[in-house]
Amino acid sequence: MAAKKRTLPRIAGFTGGPSKKAGPLGASGSGATIAVYSVKGGVGKTTFSANLAWCSAALSGHRTLLWDLDAAGGSGFLYGLEPKGSRLAEEVFSRERSPSALIQHTGWDNIDILPADESIRALDAQLMQLGKRKRLAKLTSQLSAQYERIVLDCPPVMNELSAQIVRAADLVIVPLPPSPLSARAFDLVVREISGNTKRHPPILPVLSMLDMRRTLHRQAHEANPNWPSIPYASVVEQCAVHQQPVGALAPNSPAAQAFARLWAAIEKKLGEKR
Rank of each mutant, 00 (worst) to 15 (best):
L161E: 04
L66F: 11
L181Q: 13
D117M: 10
I150A: 01
P155M: 07
F48D: 04
L130G: 11
S119N: 04
Q142G: 13
A183R: 05
D68E: 08
D153K: 01
G85F: 00
D70N: 15
A168S: 15
A101M: 13
A185T: 04
H62T: 06
R167K: 15
F48P: 00
G85Q: 14
A183L: 15
S49H: 05
I173H: 09
D68R: 05
R121W: 11
S179W: 05
D112N: 13
W67Y: 06
A183M: 13
D109S: 15
G44H: 10
Q129A: 15
E90M: 14
H62K: 12
D70Y: 08
V166H: 01
E90P: 00
A53F: 11
S182P: 08
S119D: 07
S49T: 11
V43K: 00
D109P: 14
A125N: 13
S144N: 14
K134A: 09
Y147N: 09
L181K: 08
D112S: 14
R167F: 09
I165D: 04
Q146E: 14
L130I: 03
I113Y: 07
L78V: 03
I173D: 02
G44M: 09
E148P: 01
L171C: 05
L152C: 08
E91M: 12
L136V: 10
V172I: 15
R149A: 01
A185C: 12
L130M: 12
M158Q: 07
R167L: 13
A89S: 12
I165F: 00
G76W: 08
S179F: 04
L66H: 09
P180E: 00
L81Q: 06
Q129W: 12
R135K: 14
A185V: 07
S98F: 13
D117G: 10
P155I: 03
Q146N: 13
I150F: 08
A163H: 10
N159W: 07
L143I: 05
K138Q: 13
F186R: 04
W54T: 00
N51I: 07
R97L: 15
G85P: 06
N159E: 10
S86A: 14
A53P: 06
A116H: 02
L66S: 05
N110V: 08
A50V: 15
S86C: 00
W108V: 08
D187V: 08
T106Q: 03
D187F: 02
A57W: 06
R184C: 06
I103T: 09
I113A: 06
